[in-house]
Amino acid sequence: MEALFAIVVGGLVACGVYLLLRARTFPVVLGLTLIGYGVNVFLFATGRLVTGSAPLVLPFIDSPPDPLPQALVLTAIVIGFGMTAYLVVLALKAYGQSGSDHVDGGPGE
């Protein structure tokens, strides 16, 4: 499972970096989102991967899961969501102003 997990995180981040380097605002937004997913999944794994364990901290469970990574991921998701929303609006504004979706605002397509 660890190998599969690592491949998923690596695949998400690799696709994200590729899209980020496309230098057009829409692929850049998608790329940042993919990197964000990869990072969030990675943060989850810091609580260690176990199978068949309870999802909650309950009194009768011997080895309860670590709740902190979940809190961290939640915070990271909220922040990432807000930032992406801002970036989308900014990209639309830049497209309206320069008529190009290139991140450097180059002329035309």
Partner: peptide
């Protein structure tokens, strides 16, 4: 706006 796009994208990558 153009300067801000660079700044925002770089910092979002930095946050990751």
């Amino acid at each position: 706006t153009r300067a801000a796009i660079h700044f925002v994208v770089l910092n979002l990558a930095g946050s990751s």
